[in-house]
Amino acid sequence: MVGKQSTSKSHPGAEFLSKKFDVTNKAILITGASSGFGEHFAKMYAEAGCRVFALLARRTDRLEDLAADLRQSYPDINIATVQCDVSKTEDIPRAFDEAEKKTGRCFDVIVNNAGIGPVVRVLNETEESYNMTMDVNTRACFFVAQEAVKRLKAAEQRNGSIINISSIYGKRVGHGHAVYSISKAALTQMTKAMAIEVLGEGVRVNSVHPGFFRTELTQDYYDSPKGDAFLKKHVPMERLGLLEELDGVMLLLASDASSFMTGAELLVDGAHTTSSL
Rank of each mutant, 00 (worst) to 15 (best):
S10P: 00
F16R: 14
L17H: 00
K19Q: 15
K19G: 07
F21H: 03
F21K: 04
D22C: 10
V23G: 09
I30Y: 00
I30V: 10
I30F: 01
T31V: 07
A33W: 06
S34Y: 05
F37A: 01
H40A: 02
H40L: 03
K43Q: 15
G49W: 04
C50Q: 05
L56E: 07
A57N: 09
A57W: 07
R58N: 13
R59M: 04
T60S: 13
D61K: 13
D61Y: 07
L63D: 08
L70D: 03
R71H: 09
S73A: 15
Y74N: 04
I79V: 13
V86T: 14
S87W: 00
E90K: 08
E90W: 00
A95N: 02
A95G: 07
F96G: 02
F96V: 02
D97Q: 10
G104D: 10
R105Q: 13
N112G: 07
A114Y: 08
V120L: 14
R121H: 13
L123P: 05
T126F: 08
N131Y: 07
N137P: 08
F142V: 08
V144I: 14
E147M: 02
K150H: 12
A154G: 09
A154D: 13
A155M: 11
R158M: 04
R158F: 08
I162V: 05
K171L: 13
V173N: 01
V173K: 02
Y180W: 03
S183Q: 05
A186T: 03
A186V: 02
T191N: 11
K192R: 15
M194F: 14
V198Y: 10
E201A: 14
V203A: 04
V203D: 05
H209K: 02
G211I: 10
F212S: 08
R214A: 06
T215C: 03
L217N: 12
L217S: 11
L217T: 12
Q219P: 00
D220W: 01
D220G: 01
A229W: 01
F230T: 07
L231K: 06
K233T: 12
K233W: 02
H234E: 11
M237Y: 12
L240D: 04
L242V: 13
L243A: 04
E245W: 10
L246H: 08
M250C: 12
L251I: 06
L253R: 03
L253Q: 01
S255P: 00
F260M: 06
F260S: 04
G263H: 06
E265D: 14
L266W: 11
L266V: 14
V268W: 03
D269R: 00
G270E: 06
G270Q: 09
H272D: 09
H272N: 04
T273P: 01
T274V: 15
L277P: 13
